[in-house]
Design a binder for these strands. Structure first.
Lengths: 346, 346
DNA sequence: TTGAATTCCGTGCACGGTAACGGAAATAAT
DNA sequence: ATTATTTCCGTTACCGTGCACGGAATTCAA
């Protein structure tokens, strides 16, 4: 059985009033050192734990958390991330939290800056962000820190020291895992890496670490593997088939295909039309389109994270910090890498 | 911004008092039909949502939930399940919940019955159970239903209609997935299925469904595969090596090994000593011993669930039902099947 | 010593909901 | 018509914490 120790119990035991105990608990001063120590001692003795419900009820404030992630079309990676907001809002402990999504164009640095400014002027109590543009993000979190606003990273993080928490995938390991799944531990002769051509140099692309992990693995386990690259443009999906077709006639022996971003579904149409025996295609993230391709057999395996859960957890961590001043157990939270085949895609 | 509508608002709008509104909200009678309808209409109109914190604070009861799962040694499947209790107790919404584990000997029907009786006489407010013995479990849940005690299944469920929720793995599909990972979509010639010999017939073994899924897959994709069985006794681990060795000399061509329970680690020592090129070993569940074997390379892949999370979720669902009368969104919750290789075993 | 300025602390209401208690109103029994 | 029941509803005291307000106790200035 649990005994409930209240601040009133503490007040009585220390010969003071609950007001004083409260001031001690929240460090809001106006307490003599003697009383402070006394109260602290009693708290220790009785093993006081605050009643979360009463606390939240009494401090009946509305907080707002801004979520700064790109806009995206339905089914895309960032749209799934966005769903994490509703996922979190449906939990009982998030009443009293207003979570607002501040979107921007993933490929437009200016729009990112604008979104940052918008967040700053709404003066939120907490911020969740994916640091897409490095220098701009650094400036932004600097301002947040100056304004005493806690923030959490999702997807990727910056190397600084003021963030409350980070939720993301271990990128290097995900690349290794990808290579392991592709090769199945055997030596393979060749592989095609499909990439998306980028213009903006400041755009921070965490997938480079993934590629590095992949290449590390290959260097160690398949040093003599031919690694081909093919660059495509997602804004012109109709040209992709032609590019793949061209590559396929030039290198008909290639049986392994990977992509390190979330768009493996882009190659699915070509594969569906030109399937060859023994083809292995490995990609990332459980977008609807990717899962559909998986189920059709165009994609062999997907390595998935759960971006919605990451966002939800980030919001939750921030909520607990804001309302209860509770810091997360771990600051860097590496989420599990899910392997999806057509048999466990749910 | 959220406007907070309280029962007092409703009371005022309907010209009644909060006592009456409360009676309506909780269906505890003593309200005329006219008033009832009136209040209900206002609730609809204003879109009232109860304040969870206030509710939990006011009804300041201590509830107890009994968790009826087998005792197990550290690192074993049921011990991981047990950890779900602490996992759940650490969440803020579970204060006021006393969760007690009632253990029994997995392989002893009498001990299971005794545990059931123990649970009944402690009159808990909710029960989480894994229905290990079918007929005995049916009788037990019958008594729970009669006593109006809600209960949730974990791991496997019975075909009856009174349970609040079920959390478990889709067993048939897990068998298919296992086969798919083992064969990698190719035709294989032979496979060894290692099984544990059972004596007790009433013991309900959900793994038969897993085996069925596996065999289904093989029948469809590898109809001419030789399927060998080997029965071992977990209480005499020292004999296992001899049995495997014997099998290996009789069938040296077999390169694929599976087990459908969580004890794949039992074959790891033999494999470590007698590793052959191209061997594939697939098992279930992320026990410490299994993961260790995975990392050493004795096991190729593991299909894992998260028994602790299942138990935690079951407790949470029961808590919400008991305290807030909230039913779960889905009654049958099939957890995701995790595929583990040495690169994502964390 | 007296008054003013601090420092420190207790009191009391609020938060939204629960449920026991008792009384008014409506109905039934005499 | 009067009393006894039953039905229905309002009042009220909590649950444990947050916080504003004002007053007592102490220190400082004169």
């Amino acid at each position: 059985m649990k005994e409930n120790i209240t601040i009133l119990d503490i007040a009585r035991r220390s010969g003071l009033s609950k007001g004083t105990v409260d001031r001690v608990l929240h460090n809001r001063g106006e307490v003599s050192k003697k009383s402070y120590d006394k109260v602290m001692r009693v708290i220790e003795e009785l093993g006081y734990e605050p009643n979360v419900y009463a606390s939240l009820l009494a401090s009946n404030k509305q907080y707002t958390i801004a979520v700064l992630i790109p806009d995206a079309a339905p089914g895309e990676f960032w749209e799934i991330s966005r769903r994490g907001i509703d996922l979190e809002l449906s939990t009982p402990l998030s009443s009293g939290m207003n979570v607002v999504h501040v979107g921007y164009d993933q490929y437009d640095g200016a729009s990112f800056s604008a979104a940052c400014r918008k967040v700053l002027e709404m003066k939120p109590d907490g911020v969740v962000l994916a640091p897409m543009y490095k220098s701009e993000s650094l400036a932004f979190v600097g301002e947040l820190a100056a304004a005493q606003i806690p923030y959490a990273y999702v997807d990727s993080k910056l190397e600084e020291d003021n963030y409350l928490a980070y939720f993301g995938m271990p990128m290097v390991q995900s690349g290794q895992l990808c290579a392991d799944l592709l090769t199945q531990g055997h030596r393979i002769q060749s592989v095609l890496i499909v990439r998306i051509r980028r213009n903006d140099e400041d755009l921070y692309d965490p997938n480079v670490h993934r590629r590095a992990g992949f290449l590390d693995y290959m260097l160690e386990h398949c040093p003599d593997c031919n690694i081909h690259y093919l660059f495509i443009d997602p804004t012109h999906p109709e040209r992709i088939d032609a590019l793949l077709s061209e590559f396929h006639s030039a290198h008909p022996e290639v049986r392994n295909v990977v992509m390190f971003n979330s768009r493996i579904y882009l190659v699915a149409p070509f594969i569906e039309k030109n399937y060859v025996e023994g083809l292995r295609v490995v990609g990332f993230d459980n977008l609807d389109a990717n899962v559909a391709a998986l189920k059709k057999g165009c994609v062999t395996m997907l390595i998935a994270q759960h971006p919605d859960q990451q966002v939800a957890q980030a919001i939750q961590t921030l909520s607990e910090f804001i309302t209860l001043k509770k810091r997360p157990a771990r600051r860097d939270n590496l989420v599990h890498m899910d392997i999806l085949t057509r048999y466990n895609a749910d």
